[in-house]
């Protein structure tokens, strides 16, 4: 097949779902690869993220192909008689199929498949990216006055009230006075 005939074939037959399938297939390789190349993240986090991204794209690529193809087949049900109108209907349905796949079906499939799958592989407690870890504690923090302790041993620079010294402080230090 020459370059000219290949270009003519693409020019005549290009479909709206080709670029989305091509990008999802390329991301199937490159997204996990880029994640594994990140030097800042810990090894376990990288493996977890790369696997999650790989599975996401593994779901996305065939969905981007299947949905527009099925949508275009549905145009047959509409029984459009005009050939030009049928061509336009197929194209429009393929575009809509791609959008539905991107905005509804793929996010839905991913939340239904990826999370349970990842939970099966990784024990929940070992999971590095747990949403719940980000939740801010709602407990009221009681402020306690902080006692400043001199690092040089010169206690005279601090007011006496801040560090009350009593014999009880020496009780269990192993220090013996007068013995």
């Amino acid at each position: 097949m020459s370059l000219e005939s290949t270009l003519k074939y693409i020019g005549k037959n290009v479909k709206p779902y080709w670029p989305t399938v091509a990008v999802a297939s390329a991301e199937l390789v490159f997204r996990p690869l880029f994640t594994m190349m990140d030097k800042k993240s810990p090894e376990e986090t990288k493996k977890y993220t790369a696997l999650r991204e790989g599975i996401t794209e593994l779901i996305a690529a065939p969905t981007y192909l299947a949905l527009p193809v099925l949508a275009a087949k549905a145009s047959g049900l509409l029984k459009i008689k005009d050939a030009k109108a049928e061509k336009m209907a197929k194209h429009n349905l393929q575009i809509l199929g791609t959008w539905v796949a991107a905005l509804v079906v793929i996010p839905g499939l991913c939340s239904a498949v990826v999370k349970p799958f990842m939970d099966k592989i990784y024990d929940k407690k070992d999971k590095p990216e747990d949403k719940k870890l980000d939740i801010t504690s709602k407990t009221i923090e009681i402020e306690t006055p902080k006692v400043q302790i001199s690092q040089t041993g010169n206690n005279e620079i601090y007011p006496r009230s801040a560090h009350q010294v009593s014999i009880a402080n020496f009780a269990n230090t192993g220090m013996k006075v007068g013995g």
């Binding site: 000219e4 290949t6 270009l7 003519k8 074939y9 693409i10 020019g11 005549k12 290009v14 080709w18 670029p19 091509a22 990008v23 390329a26 991301e27 490159f30 997204r31």
Partner: peptide
Amino acid sequence: ALANGIVETSSLLGTVIGLAI
């Protein structure tokens, strides 16, 4: 079809390289 093929093939290549890399 030839001219369209040139435009679409370059767009597809640009899309993959641009959005995936």
